[in-house]
Design a protein around this nucleic acid. Structure first.
Lengths: 236, 236
DNA sequence: ACATGCATTTCGCAT
DNA sequence: ATGCGAAGTGCATGT
């Protein structure tokens, strides 16, 4: 038996059976059809009839995709309960969860195709080039921040949240480092400011703050000056 | 002719033809197969062989989904160029873009199913319950912020970014309002602080700052106190 | 094209 | 469970 079973133009009762059995067997179930979608939860939405791709994953994820966009037009995160019912002879797929209460209903006017995919997958993604990698580079060579800098703690807990790296400069003053893997705007400056303020209040009144990133926007640069904070350029 | 054409266990050459023709005709092309995925761009990743769902959209979106998670394990945003080639007799799907340069390669060891979906879809999502809706409610009834509050500008430009609402209180003092549709943490306090600081520097030294949200975390509450900022609870 | 901020953000990790 | 911050965030909007 193949890992994928495809059904072209299935009738609603048959589709309901296949979807229900697929969910039960922890398969990935994919529907191609003309449907409308109702969502009620953290927000509310209605999507009128059109042809979409609907994916039901065994972990309780629901995806509804239009022809465009990377982001699904409607969805449900992992952990939801999926059900397939017949309503007035049409296939209705329902996804529910609690905390927060969220509910998605998909009603199919037409089902153009249906695939049950018993996917086997053990490999996990290996990803490099993250902020974590950048931090490791700095720990390996603290002079990337400045000559004489010594890193002392990562994820250093302040009253205002965790600072990426805290250490001391050549003169022994506390230095708070905020790390970003890409060009940053005012948001990152505010974040650094929060941590530096907290350290200044509780630890070292003369603590310095350094934003380490590939580059900063004009506004961010002005804010840094305004707040007496520093910037060090570092490519990821 | 049906809107969806399904192919079970297609051979690689045939699959390449169908994928190429589907891309050309602006169809949504979906592959179910065992593949490995290489990504090189803002970061880098490798995903070893496993059964996945691959979606190619006519707007240049690429999605690679594992059995789990709402987020695709690899992807490409709209605007990319997709190509299907045969490499050593195997189907290879490539997606490219520039600015930033990003490149995804998917090599299929097995193709379990393939669907070409000529989807028609004109309806757009109608969404309510956003921050925008919350803002409109406050503009309609400014007393939701506090008695005597009058809203004067939305998206008010400060040196540190745009404040959601700026107005005056019963005593004529400037009030900066930061709006959130859900429970907020220290980040939102920092954001409000940035705007209030900017207004205090340039407009009104005695400007007040009010965070309007359903609730705040303990840390956020302490930070608000620390900075002399206020909180008003408002359900979305 | 860049800057800015929301998002039904999702996700992982720590408490 | 909640808090917190990163993400290859995506995305719309304004400049």
């Amino acid at each position: 038996m193949s890992r994928a079973e495809t059904y072209a133009e299935p009738l609603a009762p048959r589709a309901r059976e296949v979807v229900a059995a697929g969910l039960d067997a922890e398969a990935v179930v994919t529907l191609f059809g003309r449907c409308e979608v109702d969502y009620e939860g953290r927000a509310s939405s209605y999507l009128g009839p059109g042809d979409r791709l609907v994916v039901l994953k065994p972990d309780g994820t629901l995806l509804v995709h239009k022809r465009e966009q990377r982001t699904p037009v409607n969805w449900q995160p992992p952990g939801c309960d999926h059900h397939a019912e017949l309503v007035d002879g049409q296939l209705q797929v329902v996804s529910d969860r609690s905390n927060p209460d969220e509910h998605v209903e998909i009603l199919f006017e037409e089902i153009h195709a249906l695939v049950r995919y018993d996917a086997e997958d053990v490999e996990e993604l290996e990803l490099t080039g993250t902020e974590e990698d950048l931090r490791q580079r700095i720990l390996d060579d603290p002079s990337l921040v400045e000559a004489g800098f010594e890193a002392e703690e990562t994820e250093y807990q302040t009253d205002a949240g965790a600072a990426d790296i805290v250490g001391t400069d050549a003169e022994g003053h506390t230095v708070v480092v905020e790390l970003k893997r890409r060009r940053v705007g005012p948001k990152a400056v505010g974040q650094l400011k929060r941590y530096v303020d907290a350290v200044r209040r509780t630890e070292d009144e003369a603590a310095r703050g350094i934003l380490v990133a590939p580059s900063v926007t004009d506004t961010a640069h002005e804010l840094l000056d305004e707040e007496g904070l520093e910037f060090v350029s570092l490519e990821p």
